[in-house]
C-alpha cells in the first residue's frame, strides 16, 4: 500500500468510525431522539423526507453559488485594487476590516428592508460573508510579489496590466484558492443565516420550522445536507486548486487534495 492510499483509507475509516461511535453511544446511554438523534435515524429521515427536502437543497445551493460567484468577482476586483495601490490600501483596508467585523445577522434585516424577503437577501448575505477573505488574500498575494519577478517584466517594458496578468495574478493564485476554500463554507453560513431569518425556502428555513416543531431528526438531516454540500464544494475547489497551483505545492505529500 502506498502512503497515499494508506492516508485515504485511514481518513475514510476515521469518518465512518465517527458515525459508528455516535450510533453506539446513543444506544448505550439510551439518548432520546429529541436530544440527539442516531445517525441511522437521520439517514432514515433523509430518505423518507428526501423528495420534500430536495427543492430546498437546490435553493440553498443555488443561492450560495450565486452569492459566492458575485463574492469572487467583487473580492478579486477589490483585492487587486488594494494590493496594487498604496493609497487604496490605506483607505480601503480599515473600511473593509470594519465592515467585516459587523455580525452578518444584523445585516440581514437591512437587506430585507431594501429587497424584501426571499432569495435576494440570502444571495447578498452569502456574498458579503465571502468577500473579506478573498480580498485579504488577493491583496496579500499581490503586495508580496517578489520585485525580482516584476523586474523580469519591467526590463521588457511591460505595462502595469501585463505585469498584473503575467506575474501578479498567477503568483496570487495559491492565496486566492486558499481563500476560496474558506469563503465557500462562509457563503453557506451566510445563506443559511438569511434563510433562517427571512425566507420561506431553503434548508435554513426547513431547519427553523423543524426545530420549532421539535422535529429534531429533521434538523439534523438539514445539518447533514449542509455539511455534505460544504464538503463537496470544498473538495471541488481543492481539486481545481491542485490543478492550477500545483507549482506552489512542491511538497507533494500535501499537494494531493
Amino acid at each position: 500500500m502506498t502512503p497515499h492510499t494508506r492516508r485515504k483509507v485511514w481518513s475514510a475509516v476515521l469518518i465512518v468510525g465517527f458515525f459508528v461511535l455516535w450510533e453506539a453511544l446513543c444506544w448505550l446511554f439510551n439518548v432520546s431522539d429529541i436530544v440527539v438523534p442516531k445517525p441511522s435515524q437521520i439517514i432514515y429521515t433523509l430518505y423518507q423526507r428526501g423528495p420534500a427536502l430536495w427543492p430546498h437543497t437546490l435553493q440553498t445551493l443555488y443561492t450560495t453559488l450565486v452569492g459566492f460567484g458575485f463574492g469572487i468577482l467583487i473580492g478579486i476586483a477589490l483585492g487587486v485594487l488594494i494590493g496594487s495601490s498604496r493609497l487604496a490600501y490605506d483607505v480601503a483596508y480599515p473600511l473593509l476590516v470594519g465592515f467585516a467585523s459587523i455580525p452578518k445577522v444584523a445585516v440581514v434585516p437591512i437587506f430585507v428592508l431594501w429587497f424584501g424577503s426571499g432569495t435576494v437577501p440570502a444571495v447578498l448575505t452569502a456574498m458579503i460573508m465571502c468577500i473579506f477573505p478573498i480580498v485579504v488574500n488577493v491583496a496579500t498575494g499581490l503586495a508580496t510579489t517578489e520585485p525580482e519577478l516584476e523586474d523580469v517584466m519591467r526590463a521588457l517594458r511591460a505595462t502595469k496590466t501585463d505585469i498584473l496578468w503575467n506575474v501578479g495574478l498567477p503568483r496570487t493564485m495559491p492565496y486566492f484558492f486558499a481563500s476560496l476554500k474558506v469563503s465557500v463554507t462562509l457563503a453557506f453560513v451566510g445563506t443559511v443565516i438569511s434563510e433562517t431569518v427571512a425566507s420561506n425556502r431553503g434548508i435554513g428555513n426547513v431547519m427553523m420550522i423543524a426545530s420549532s416543531n421539535f422535529d429534531v431528526p429533521l434538523v439534523f438531516a438539514g445539518l447533514m445536507i449542509l455539511a455534505f454540500l460544504g464538503v463537496s464544494l470544498y473538495a471541488i475547489f481543492s481539486l481545481i486548486e491542485s490543478r492550477i497551483t500545483g507549482w506552489a505545492h512542491r511538497k507533494d505529500e500535501f499537494a494531493m487534495g
Binding site: 517578489e146 525580482e148 519577478l149 523586474d151 523580469v152 517584466m153 526590463a155 521588457l156 517594458r157 511591460a158 501585463d162 503575467n166 506575474v167 498567477p170 503568483r171 493564485m173 497551483t245 507549482w247 506552489a248
Partner: peptide
C-alpha cells in the same frame, strides 16, 4: 528592444521553462 539576463536567474515558477523563455515574445 532590451534583453536582460539577471544575476539570479529568476524564472516564473508557474510556467514551464519554454513558456518562461517565450515570455519576452508575449510582451515585446
Amino acid at each position: 528592444r532590451v534583453g536582460m539576463a539577471f544575476q539570479n536567474p529568476t524564472m516564473l515558477p508557474w510556467l514551464t521553462v519554454r513558456d518562461n523563455v517565450m515570455m519576452p515574445l508575449k510582451i515585446v
